[in-house]
Design a protein around this nucleic acid. Structure first.
Lengths: 128, 128
DNA sequence: GGGAGTCATTGACAAGCATCGATGAGGGTG
DNA sequence: CACCCTCATCGATGCTTGTCAATGACTCCC
């Protein structure tokens, strides 16, 4: 790719654009860095699954702690899968758990959920 | 799957209750139907990928239409992958495209994006 | 028509994710 | 102690998603 003749330059002006070059803006990197973008998508992914959504919803409706055996009854998957999704929610910080005897009780971590909500809300504001 | 005799049901129930008072709450279906949950997660999934997030962000920043070759420069994946993600955004209704000569220009469909935003915002409100 | 460029699609492959049976850890009960 | 219960983890399996080289459809310019 060498030089353009001056007539080619002229063509480009009248035509707006010549083939073989970059179309419009040179400077089109996203204002979102790859790191920022991944941070946002990680937040979205946590609840981008129906079971996790439903689990969190149940935990929220019952203000207190809920036993796993009850959560199990609230969603259409088997126990190991429930455990799996609860683990993801826990690793995301949105819920906590306590063992009590034979049972495990899960509960919403309000502050963390609130932080999650405002991060997502902030992300939404990008798209106004 | 077979039936349990009613005495077996009785035994089972009383045994579970005997194990604790909190467990096995009756009223525990999610207020979110499986269908509602699925609808929400589909909305979340669209933008739960860094490349799609960045593409949409670029399209929004340039108010008008953007040529694919420019979008290509804005994200860290190759052309077929860009095409792939643009297709997903298009199928979700968030962007549209027009062919113009050799070039394809993409643009944000404002109304659809706005509808998307309010659906997600409504979903967020579940988790207040 | 020939050549070069843009973009979509195809096809192959890999990586990630969801699911569940089996098993294990650990506590309660008789 | 022997047994049963709850829940976590492991391991195998199938499905979905992301990625890119290759190809194809189409357009423009000479």
């Amino acid at each position: 790719m060498g030089f353009m003749s001056s007539s080619a330059v002229q063509d480009r002006t009248s035509r707006q654009r010549a083939r073989g070059e970059r179309c419009c803006d040179r400077d089109l990197r996203s204002s979102l860095s790859a790191a920022e973008a991944r941070a946002i998508t990680r937040d979205l992914e946590v609840l981008a699954h129906p079971v996790r959504l439903q689990l969190l919803e149940v935990l929220l409706r019952k203000q207190g702690r809920v036993c796993v055996c009850d959560l199990e009854a609230a969603v259409p998957v088997k126990q190991p899968t429930v455990s799996h999704h609860l683990k993801l929610l826990r690793e995301a910080g949105l819920v906590g758990s306590e063992r009590e005897g034979v049972w495990a009780f899960y509960f919403v971590r309000r502050e963390a959920l609130e932080a999650w909500r405002s991060r997502v809300a902030a992300a939404l504001r990008w798209f106004e």
